[in-house]
Design a protein around this nucleic acid. Structure first.
Lengths: 218, 218
DNA sequence: TCATTAACGCACTATCTAGTTACTTTCTTA
DNA sequence: TAAGAAAGTAACTAGATAGTGCGTTAATGA
């Protein structure tokens, strides 16, 4: 019988214990998995593997697959609202602020396609998870009032027409970017052009800015 | 031991054999199931049950779950394109034709929410099923040229400005209705109003018509 | 009427999947 | 430093779930 200790064996690396890091890795892997396959199609085992965490940890930290999804979704909303607030549009000239918002929204969807897929998945489930989130509601209010403020200032200086509902405007700004991205695969077939080509993206963004500015023009 | 024939038993109804009817029932049930739960979340057993067909028949007629989904999706596209063609917009005054199209699109999404969910599901799968469909491509071309025709006539009579890309216009008309419907659940939470209330729907449609007409105005 | 074809149904399986049980290992603090 | 708490793991289970093998029954046509 030989010794168990091999001369060349590296010192058995002590497992590093870091709850926050593990949680973060799980959330990151879950975001990718749910974005790619939806809530129904996402696999808990795959998330655990990608996160290099034990599956048990998912249940320890998030209770259930749906609990995990809810956290992922909530974080996704907080992320986009936080980024919007960082634009500080309250201090930008109205017309320019609106253009900046349209551009930001389009770019955000482009760079964060998971956001779109997560929201779609949540709507398939009739928003049962988002409904429970108080944080999201608080952030949403801030967001709507930001656009409201831009509109009001624009009307005051005469660059925008009066009577525009900020919610309808918000929905429209989101819609013209969101639809383009979420349907980029079927859209590329239906319209027989690569909607994700660099030129196509630039053209679409220009069109969107134009659409919104014409909409609010006096 | 008593006889197996109960006196009150109805004459054992002879199974009616009707391939077309069975196929239709399966497709109808599948549309509902996939619309509600997506391709990944939809259950073949549930489809068979709702269709009052044997599961074996699904595999007999459609080969696989994905084969079934593909047929459902293809039908959904053919349905909307057929309905659009029925509008006969080529014979309507340009401005009115555009308004009619915006209204139709919005109403169609409202009355056929399955269409939206099916398209979303297909985009989650990177359009791998639609890609195979030749019919859809033919119908799509007709659709784009219809809007192109409206635009050209409008420019000729001076009611529309020149240089608008019909594809961009098409996307925008679809987007402002589609986004509103597909995100009606999360949207109702984010904007803290019932987006599906009768008043809200009417207001949104008016806003959409306004958006498009301002977009094409000279 | 008889044989062929097509529609239909039962019961099964291999595999997957969310969630759990029963542990071991590492960290913290009294 | 001892003991408890927290982090982490492996192996398992019960129930789904897509897909199938094979036999039965109704229509068709010669």
């Amino acid at each position: 019988m030989t010794t168990d200790i091999e001369p060349t064996a590296p010192a058995a690396k002590p497992r590093i214990r870091d709850a926050e890091a593990t949680k973060a890795r799980i959330l990151d892997a879950a975001k990718k998995e749910f974005a790619k396959n939806g809530l129904g199609g996402g696999r808990v085992d795959d998330i655990a593997e990608k996160a290099k965490a034990n599956k048990r940890m998912i249940y320890h930290y998030f209770g259930s697959k749906e609990g995990l999804f809810q956290t992922v979704l909530e974080n996704a909303y907080v992320d986009i609202r936080t980024a919007e607030q960082k634009l500080k549009l309250d201090h930008v000239e109205p017309k320019q602020a609106l253009e900046k918002l349209v551009r930001f929204t389009f770019d955000y969807y482009l760079k964060n396609p998971e956001f779109i897929t997560l929201v779609n998945s949540e709507n398939l489930h009739r928003a049962k998870h988002l409904r429970k989130s108080e944080v999201v509601k608080v952030y949403s209010r801030k967001f709507v009032s930001m656009v409201e403020n831009i509109l009001e200032r624009g009307v005051a200086t005469g660059v925008f027409r009066a009577g525009i509902d900020p919610v309808q405007l918000n929905i429209t700004i989101a819609a013209i970017g969101y639809y383009y991205m979420t349907n980029r695969f079927t859209g590329s077939i239906v319209f027989e052009r690569d909607l994700m080509a660099k030129d196509a993206l630039e053209e679409r963004l220009r069109f969107n800015i134009d659409t919104i500015l014409r909409l609010v023009a006096p």
